[in-house]
Design a protein around this nucleic acid. Structure first.
Length: 460
DNA sequence: TAGACGGCGCATAATG
DNA sequence: CATTATGCG
DNA sequence: GTCTA
C-alpha cells in the first residue's frame, strides 16, 4: 500500500499526511485487516482508510478518473520547480498564466514573471548543471590570481577540498592580510539554539544591512569582483554582499586556455562558451580555520560540528569558536583576554575589536540584525566607527509589535549579562581540539562519516 | 467546520 | 532611505 | 490529506 501512496506531490500538507500514515502503518507489528482497522491509527482518516480497503480488495485506485486536470497541473508545477530558486509560488503563478514547462520560460511573457536570479538560473541552466573538473577549477583560480592583488590568498573549498573528482560548482575562500575584523556573534546566539537537524541552507559571511556605499566599498567587491568583471570572467551575479559573492563565471577553454579579454567580453555578452557557478567568500585573516571548516564540510558535517559546540555550551560559526562569558553583577567586565597561544600581530588586531564590547547598541549598525548565527555586527565597526555612537540613531527599539518587543528586551538583557569570548578561530586542528574531537580530514567531512562514526548523534 | 499543518534566516520586492 | 512583506530553501 | 479547537 505504500506504493499506492508514494506518488502524490501537489499539496505539501497532503504529502505529509501520506507520510504520516505510512509511518503509522510501518510501526505496526501486525498486518492490517481492513480500512476500519487502520482508521483507529493516528494519522489515518476516512480517505486513506477507504483506499486501504480498495487495496485489500485488489481494486485499483485510479487517480486519472478522479482528477485529470489536477494531475496535469502537478506535473507542470513539479517540472517548473526544477529550476533553482523557483518555488511553489512562482510555479503556481506561471501555471495559472499558461506556462506548463521549463522550455516555455523562453517566452517573454513568462520570462518577465521571473525574478532576476531566477532568470539567470534559467538562462545558464544547462551550463550550471554541468559539474566542473578539478583542472577547470584550478585554471579559474590561476586566472583570478593573475587579475587581482597578489596579497590575496585563494583556497578552493567545498567538494574540491573534500577530494571529489567533480565539483557541482566552484567555491573559493579569499583571505587578505588587511582584512582582519572578526565580528561578534549575536548576543543571543547561545540562548537560541537553532534547529540543528533541518532548515537553513548554508550561507556564511552574511553581513547585516548596510547602506549602499558601505556595501559597495567592500574589499571583495572592489578589489576582486570588479577586476574580474573587467577581465571578462564574470558573466552574471546571483547575489553580492560585502563578504560574499555568487554568480556565473566563464569556464576555461579546452586545455585550460583563456581567450584574449576583448573576445571573452564579447562572448560573455553573447552568452557564448561555457559557464559555471562561482562562489566567493571573504574571511578575516585570523579566522582561516573557522572559515575553512564552514566552507569545507558538507552541510551535515557542519551542522554536526555546531551541534557539538552547542552541547559544550559554546557557539561555532564561520568566524570562530566562541564561549559565553557572563559578566559579574556589578557590570565591571572581567578583563580576561583569552590569548591561549601567542597571537601574531595581525591576529591580535583582528581580535581586539571582538573583546571591546563597547558598542553603542543603539547604533544603526545593530538594528535589523537577525536572530541567528553569523549575522550580527556588520563589519562597519572595524575600528573607526566605534567610539562615536549614533549614525542615524533610532536603530532598534521603537514601537515594535508585542512579540518582537519582547524578543528585543530579552536581547538587551543578554547584552548586559555577558559577552562572547573567542576561543579559537585560526586553526581547524585547534577547533577540533577545543571541541574534544579527533581531527577529521576534509575528505571525510561528509554524510558517510556521520553515519559510520556517529559522534554523538542528535538525530532523533 | 474552519484553520493549522515548522520555524527561521536570507535576498529581494513592496511600502512607508 | 529605512522598514516591512514575501518567496525560498 | 488529517487533526483539533
Amino acid at each position: 500500500m505504500k506504493e499506492e501512496d508514494a506518488s502524490p506531490l501537489r499539496n505539501a500538507y497532503k504529502v505529509r499526511s501520506f507520510q504520516n500514515a505510512i509511518k503509522a502503518i510501518a510501526q505496526l507489528d501486525h498486518d492490517l485487516a481492513s480500512g476500519a482497522d487502520a482508521l483507529k491509527l493516528n494519522g489515518i482518516g476516512s480517505s486513506i482508510a477507504f483506499r486501504i480497503d480498495l487495496f485489500l480488495e485488489g481494486k485499483e485506485y485510479d487517480p486519472a478518473k478522479h482528477d485529470v486536470a489536477l494531475e496535469r497541473r502537478k506535473h507542470a508545477v513539479a517540472n517548473l520547480r526544477k529550476l533553482p530558486g523557483l518555488g511553489a509560488t512562482t510555479a503556481r503563478q506561471l501555471y495559472e498564466a499558461g506556462c506548463t514547462s521549463l522550455a516555455q520560460l523562453r517566452e517573454p511573457r513568462f520570462f518577465e514573471m521571473l525574478l532576476p536570479h531566477q532568470r539567470i538560473n534559467f538562462l545558464y541552466a544547462e551550463h550550471l548543471e554541468k559539474p566542473l573538473t578539478r583542472a577547470e577549477a584550478e585554471s579559474i583560480v590561476a586566472f583570478i590570481h593573475e587579475h587581482i592583488s597578489s596579497k590575496f590568498e585563494i583556497i578552493i573549498t567545498d567538494a574540491y577540498r573534500r577530494d571529489s573528482p567533480t565539483l557541482p560548482h566552484l567555491s573559493l575562500l579569499l583571505l587578505h592580510p588587511a582584512h582582519i575584523h572578526i565580528p561578534l556573534p549575536a548576543p543571543t546566539a547561545h540562548t537560541r539554539p537553532r534547529s540543528l537537524l533541518r532548515g537553513n541552507a548554508r550561507n556564511p559571511f552574511h553581513t547585516a544591512y548596510q547602506r549602499r556605499p558601505v556595501r559597495l566599498a567592500s574589499r571583495l567587491l572592489q578589489d576582486v569582483v570588479r577586476p574580474l568583471e573587467d577581465a571578462g570572467l564574470l558573466a552574471a551575479a546571483l547575489g553580492a554582499s560585502p563578504a560574499r559573492w555568487a554568480g556565473v563565471a566563464v569556464r576555461p577553454g579546452a586545455g585550460g586556455r583563456w581567450k584574449e579579454v576583448g573576445e571573452r567580453l564579447r562572448d560573455v555578452r553573447a552568452r557564448r562558451g561555457g559557464y559555471c557557478r562561482l562562489e566567493l567568500s571573504m574571511a578575516p585573516w585570523g579566522a582561516r580555520g573557522a572559515a575553512l571548516l564552514a566552507l569545507t564540510g558538507d552541510v551535515d558535517f557542519w551542522r554536526m560540528m555546531r551541534d557539538k559546540a552547542a552541547g559544550l555550551d559554546m557557539h561555532l560559526n564561520e568566524y570562530g569558536l566562541w564561549r559565553w562569558q557572563a559578566k559579574p553583577r556589578d557590570g565591571s567586565a572581567p578583563h580576561t583576554p583569552v590569548a591561549a597561544e601567542p597571537a601574531s600581530e595581525v591576529q591580535a588586531k583582528a581580535r581586539a575589536p571582538a573583546y571591546e564590547c563597547d558598542y553603542d547598541f543603539d547604533d544603526a549598525e545593530w538594528a535589523g540584525y537577525g536572530n541567528g548565527y553569523g549575522g550580527a555586527s556588520a563589519g562597519a565597526s572595524g575600528g573607526a566607527s566605534k567610539g562615536k555612537g549614533k549614525g542615524t540613531g533610532k536603530g532598534k527599539g521603537k514601537d515594535v509589535e508585542k512579540d518582537k518587543a519582547r524578543g528585543k528586551e530579552a536581547e538587551d538583557a543578554q547584552e548586559e549579562n555577558g559577552y562572547w569570548e573567542l576561543v579559537e578561530s585560526e586553526s581547524e586542528e585547534r577547533i577540533f581540539d577545543a571541541l574534544g574531537m579527533e581531527y577529521v580530514p576534509p575528505e571525510r567531512r561528509n554524510f558517510v562519516f556521520l553515519r559510520d562514526k556517529p559522534p554523538k548523534k542528535a538525530i532523533a
